[in-house]
Amino acid sequence: MPLTLRDNTATITGTLTVEEVEPLAGWLRSTDRPRVNLRGCTHLHTGALQLLLFFRPTVVSRPLDPFLSTHIMPLLGKRNKELEASS
């Protein structure tokens, strides 16, 4: 499963498809101080990226994927620099 939802941490692995956008949105809406682990994520659907930009969860692990790491991570991590460093 690309998306594993726990109490306050969502782990995204592999390709997160558009079908998982809705459950992710529901989880983000209902979770206090959500954290997202992107380490194993290779791609996330635009809708999911937009969710991360809208709800601004704490990204707890930098993705290994070079594209996400280079181009997407800087945006997600803007407000979470200290957490990123601790991961």
């Binding site: 956008v21 992710l24 949105a25 635009t46 809708g47 937009q50 969710l51 930009l53 809208f54 709800f55």
Partner: peptide
């Protein structure tokens, strides 16, 4: 300007 959280439509591409 983002929409309000309650009106946020996850299937509308705003980016």
């Amino acid at each position: 300007a983002w929409p309000q959280a309650a009106e946020y439509d996850e299937y509308a591409c705003l980016l």
